[in-house]
């Protein structure tokens, strides 16, 4: 994987050097939309539990550097919320633990463009993200609420709601995330300067959300899809 990333960076540099001799253009813009995150982990020790993908939000600045008529480099520094949830099933339905984690993310993608007026683009990328803040909330059965029913020998438990901010633990939490991305989308020129666009991107973390050691023996990787609308202004 390290070699693939190295190759990608070398390719970007080569294209950048090549572009300096052509008519390079810089465009700026903004984008916003929603994110869908899933935590990829082995569900060992999670009985009657469903790993749920959760919807969040994303927003960012767009900086595009046109390399050739058919290629551009794009970076979209911004905010992405990466949420996930563990929902209990069966008799425990209604109980859940949800995690909302907010990241500052810096992706770099190399996009290949095709099409005439309506342009389509597609490309791979890499990204890094910093875990800014987080919160945990959920419905959990209150063990001391146990109440035995007249017609049953089992206890019923009342669900209690809780919410708290995540307190970072340097021994547990991996605040820096690195990974690869893939993006595709389309751009439509409103006039010579302005374009509107729609993009779909996928970010796959290659670093675990929790540090992996004997205390946390199972890796947890964020897999995040985003869909954004964008407005782009050409500086040239």
């Amino acid at each position: 994987m390290a070699n693939a990333l190295k190759g990608f960076l070398i390719l970007l540099i080569c294209l950048f050097i090549n572009s300096s001799t052509s008519n390079a253009q810089v465009s700026l813009g903004v984008e916003g939309g929603f994110s869908l995150n899933h935590l990829f982990t082995k569900m060992i020790g999670y009985n009657s539990t469903k790993n749920v993908t959760k919807l969040g939000a994303t927003t960012g600045l767009i900086i595009q550097y046109k390399l050739t008529d058919n290629t551009f480099i794009e970076t979209t520094p911004g905010f992405v919320s990466k949420k996930y949830s563990f929902a209990r099933t069966g008799l425990l339905k209604g109980a859940f633990l949800s995690f909302e984690n907010n990241y500052l993310q810096l992706p770099v993608t190399l996009n290949f463009v095709f099409g005439n007026k309506l342009k389509f683009f597609l490309g791979p990328g890499i990204y890094t993200a910093y875990w800014l803040s987080g919160s945990e909330y959920g419905n959990i059965p209150d063990i001391f609420s146990a109440s035995q029913q007249a017609d049953d020998t089992s206890d019923t438990l009342t669900l209690v709601y809780f919410k708290k901010s995540h307190r970072f633990d340097p021994t547990l939490d991996n605040r820096w995330e690195f990974g690869v991305s893939a993006s595709c989308g389309l751009r439509y020129p409103l006039n010579e300067k302005y374009k509107i666009g729609l993009s779909v991107k996928y970010y796959q973390a290659l670093t675990s959300r929790y540090k992996v050691n004997t205390a946390n023996t199972y890796t947890n990787y964020n897999g995040t899809g985003t869909a954004c609308l964008s407005l782009i202004y050409s500086l040239n």
């Binding site: 994987m1 290629t71 996009n111 290949f112 597609l122 490309g123 796959q204 023996t217 990787y221």
Partner: peptide, 23 residues
């Protein structure tokens, strides 16, 4: 460009799906 990008996206996806969980 299209062929290249499709290839890279495919390879990256493959790398991700093959990543090991530490057990």
């Amino acid at each position: 460009g299209m062929i290249f990008s499709v290839l890279v996206v495919f390879l990256l996806t493959l790398c991700c799906s093959c990543k090991k969980t530490t057990e």
